[in-house]
Simulated assay, not measured.
Amino acid sequence: MPDKPLSFSATCALLILMAEDREVSNPELKEKYGVTVTGKERTTLNDGGFVTSRRTGRSFSHVLTDKGWHHASELVRDGISAPGTGVAAAAVKALVGNLQRHIDRSETSLAEIFGREEDLGPGVNEASTAETPAEPIAQQSIAPPPIERVPASEDIETLIRKAYAQLADKPYAWVSLTRLRPRLGNTPRDEVDATLRQMIGLPDVRLVPESNQKMLTDEDRGAAVVIGDQAKHLILIGA
């Protein structure tokens, strides 16, 4: 059964949580934005799988789910159709509806735009996160043990996703393109790069540069994909 369309107020609550990109309590939301996610909006977002809420003390805290991020990307791509009136509602619709222009021009993603610095990986912050520590590219094994290669008959995005899954040693691990490209067989380089540039717009894909440029080898630089005006060396799938 398809999801019931969200109301404008529930849509705005989802967008606030997207912009925060972290678990936020109702008292924090009240202090920062003058609103809370309660009642019908909270129930709708929880039941639809867009937001996970948990009781913290006498209040609730909320965080966007993967489905919530995916819906936010759809709103950015297609615009907000939920009814909302007044200048504030028009401003929200205008900002969200035209955010896609920046994403297309910079070839980035919502995760990179709103992601917090500590969560965006080594390309943004040299300190690794507690959950997903990333080792410098120079310390990674460029020739991992042989693993079954993905069939060349599959589409390129599937090839990339399967190659990433073979190389990632844990969920949310950063994998260098130096290690990933050899897993794609004889797939043309320009087609792989074009696919990577398309994938960065997906809510579960992140591509970032290596923060410690001194650690890069000529092979690492050659394996990078240039998106916008920046060379990206690392990929994470599943964010």
Score class of each variant (00 low, 15 high):
residue 62 H to Q: 02
residue 236 L to S: 12
residue 139 Q to E: 12
residue 22 R to K: 05
residue 238 G to M: 03
residue 213 Q to I: 13
residue 185 G to K: 00
residue 224 A to S: 03
residue 122 P to Q: 09
residue 191 E to D: 15
residue 19 A to E: 09
residue 131 E to L: 15
residue 189 R to I: 10
residue 126 E to L: 15
residue 106 S to D: 15
residue 105 R to V: 15
residue 214 K to M: 14
residue 219 E to Q: 10
residue 184 L to T: 01
residue 148 E to S: 06
residue 45 L to R: 00
residue 35 V to L: 10
residue 7 S to P: 03
residue 163 A to P: 01
residue 32 K to V: 08
residue 49 G to T: 02
residue 116 R to N: 08
residue 74 E to R: 13
residue 170 K to R: 06
residue 2 P to Q: 02
residue 22 R to W: 01
residue 176 S to N: 04
residue 122 P to V: 09
residue 33 Y to N: 02
residue 222 G to L: 06
residue 198 Q to E: 03
residue 38 T to I: 14
residue 155 D to E: 09
residue 213 Q to N: 13
residue 39 G to K: 01
residue 59 S to Y: 13
residue 237 I to H: 03
residue 78 D to I: 08
residue 185 G to H: 00
residue 178 T to K: 11
residue 44 T to H: 09
residue 26 N to L: 03
residue 74 E to S: 13
residue 210 E to Y: 05
residue 99 L to Y: 09
residue 193 D to L: 07
residue 182 P to M: 08
residue 174 W to T: 04
residue 133 P to D: 10
residue 182 P to D: 07
residue 167 L to I: 00
residue 188 P to E: 05
residue 98 N to E: 05
residue 65 T to N: 01
residue 91 A to Y: 15
residue 202 L to Y: 14
residue 126 E to Y: 15
residue 141 S to C: 11
residue 59 S to R: 09
residue 119 D to Q: 09
residue 100 Q to V: 14
residue 208 V to S: 05
residue 24 V to S: 08
residue 148 E to I: 04
residue 194 A to H: 08
residue 169 D to K: 10
residue 183 R to D: 07
residue 109 S to Q: 06
residue 151 P to K: 00
residue 236 L to E: 12
residue 151 P to E: 00
residue 71 H to L: 15
residue 134 A to P: 10
residue 81 S to R: 13
residue 123 G to Y: 02
residue 203 P to G: 08
residue 9 S to Q: 13
residue 219 E to L: 09
residue 180 L to Y: 01
residue 120 L to A: 04
residue 185 G to N: 00
residue 137 I to E: 06
residue 53 S to E: 06
residue 172 Y to H: 11
